[in-house]
Amino acid sequence: MSGILSEDITALSSLDRSALSSRDSTLLRALDRDTWLSDKDCIQQPFTTLPNDCLFQILMIENISQSKMSQLDDIDNKLDPAKQRVDRLQNSRVVIHEVNMDNDDSVTKEKYGSKDVFKLTLQDKSGKFFYAINYNIIPWINVCMIGSKLIIKSGTSFNRGVFIVKDTDCSFLGGTNRIWNENRESKLYNYLDSKLKRDCNNNVNGRKRKN
């Protein structure tokens, strides 16, 4: 079953369900559960709770408490370290390059602060899209790759297409989709840049309408 962690769950074929481990059984139960809302109902559904555990794959991770311009600057510096200014090097926070998953201390040295909020773009096996916003620190956010699998547990708060999750509401299974993660920083840069340009255009058009 570990192969599921590197696969697109919207394109899975028949699965071998023999000799399952406890972890495999948990994964398959969550995979077999259908998310309970259609795309239209998902957006319109006011506050409720998830009725059963569901498996999702993570398509995007965005720090929405940090400005897009600042994130673009950070990514630009990663892609071209020569652009890194001395004062940014002196004032930068801890960046984790390696994480020992058996040592909680290494995971809790988050790059982000306790008040940072992340938006995860999620997809279920039917292809429907959902979002998740963290209520508290999610310790695995620094090791999460695109395509990682996540079980959101029954009872998790849900409002108009968005899960409001605490760390205890999730079981992070890991995994990665190699193709999806190729040139990941460049893809994230293009994604944030397009959103920033869209926001700027909306602001300009909004001012024009007011005038």
Rank of each mutant, 00 (worst) to 15 (best):
Q123Y: 02
D105H: 05
N100S: 08
M101H: 11
I138E: 00
P139T: 10
Q84A: 06
P81D: 04
F118W: 14
D76Q: 13
H97V: 12
F118Y: 15
L122W: 00
Q123C: 12
L72K: 02
F129Q: 11
H97S: 14
E98P: 01
K125L: 01
V94S: 05
L72D: 00
S92P: 02
K125I: 03
D76N: 10
L89T: 08
N134W: 03
V86L: 12
R93I: 06
F130C: 06
L89I: 06
C144P: 04
N134K: 06
K111L: 13
Q71S: 05
N91L: 08
I75A: 01
D105T: 08
C144T: 15
L120S: 03
E110T: 13
Q90E: 04
H97L: 13
V86G: 00
Y131H: 13
V94F: 06
V117E: 13
I137Y: 03
R93V: 09
P81E: 04
V94T: 08
V95Y: 14
D87V: 09
I137P: 00
Y112G: 07
V143H: 01
D80G: 04
T108M: 10
D102T: 09
T121N: 05
I138L: 15
K125Y: 06
K111R: 15
K125W: 03
D102N: 13
E98G: 05
P81C: 04
I141Y: 03
I138W: 05
P81I: 02
